[in-house]
């Protein structure tokens, strides 16, 4: 079947990072952005790079998977780095061509931004490579639970997420079949101008939507027949719980924050 079927980039391996609670990884990824904000010296960036590199090594995920995460953003990274290099204010001019001048401060700033980009992408890729989308959904639901107090329908959101993730492979297969059927009738996809591409997707979308609606009707009937009402008092099939390893990660992040603050 289609090799693009994997949602996210999850790589099923058995490592320390894979076994962590999804909430720990989500919170860690967020905390990292906060910590990186304080970094403003070579030493602090070196420490953060070491931390991310260590995480990548412990995850046992081959480096090429991380590099793949950079590819779609390569243009953006190079563009912003060059912009900094050429236009960041600075005193020590290294060289000057016309109105463009490269300063030492600009060079340092561009290097910092480049590293920051890489570290954030690697950290975020580390989360998605080592955590199943369903586990991320469970983690997000658990972290969002306090929002239920301000009437955010956390349970409904979690259920929609789970059902959606369950049906992506099914609908993907369906989309593949529809595409083949339409191509056999002479349709072309992913070719030509934007306008032609737009026209080509209508015969793909209508059967896909109708298929999705049929499945939804069947599932809704089945759920109602089994007495589903709402989330109140429901138990969970997949339970998540913090372990000793999550505590180690928490301590590592506290240590990292302290060290970055001290070095900056």
């Amino acid at each position: 079947m289609n090799n693009k079927l994997v949602i996210g980039q999850y790589l099923p391996l058995d490592s320390f990072i894979h076994r962590l609670d999804p909430r720990t990884k989500l919170l860690g990824a967020f905390a990292f952005v906060g910590i990186i904000f304080f970094a403003d010296s070579w030493q602090s960036y070196a420490l953060l790079s070491l931390f991310v590199l260590l995480g990548m090594m412990i995850s046992s995920v081959p480096i090429r998977y991380f590099l793949r995460g950079i590819r779609p953003l390569l243009f953006l990274i190079l563009f912003t780095t060059c912009l900094q290099l050429l236009f960041a204010p600075g005193q020590t001019i290294l060289f000057k061509i016309g109105f463009i001048k490269v300063t030492e401060e600009g060079l340092i700033q561009a290097a910092f931004i480049f590293i920051r980009f890489l570290l954030i992408i690697f950290m975020s890729t580390l989360l998605t490579l080592t955590t199943m989308p369903l586990a991320i959904a469970d983690g997000l639901e658990s972290l969002m639970r306090p929002l239920a107090k301000i009437k955010v329908p956390v349970h409904e959101i979690a259920l929609i997420l789970s059902i959606a993730l369950r049906f992506v492979p099914t609908l993907m297969e369906e989309a593949d079949k529809i595409k083949d059927a339409q191509m056999a009738r002479g349709a072309t996809f992913g070719e030509g101008k934007l306008k032609d591409q737009m026209k080509a997707i209508v015969p793909l979308l209508i059967p896909l939507f109708i298929n999705a609606i049929d499945r939804a009707e069947e599932l809704a009937t089945a759920m109602t027949a089994r007495g589903y009402k709402d989330g109140q008092g429901r138990t969970k099939y997949r339970e998540i719980s913090y372990g000793r390893n999550d505590l180690y990660v928490l301590l590592a992040f506290i240590g990292l924050t302290g060290a970055v603050l001290w070095l900056s």
């Binding site: 059902i163 993730l165 049906f167 992506v168 609908l171 993907m172 989309a175 896909l208 609606i213």
Partner: peptide, 18 residues
């Protein structure tokens, strides 16, 4: 709720597919 879930799935499929 289920229709929303299936439409979210279609969104994801279209994002990956096209």
């Amino acid at each position: 709720l289920v229709i929303n879930a299936l439409f979210a799935a279609v969104y994801i499929v279209i994002t990956i597919f096209l």
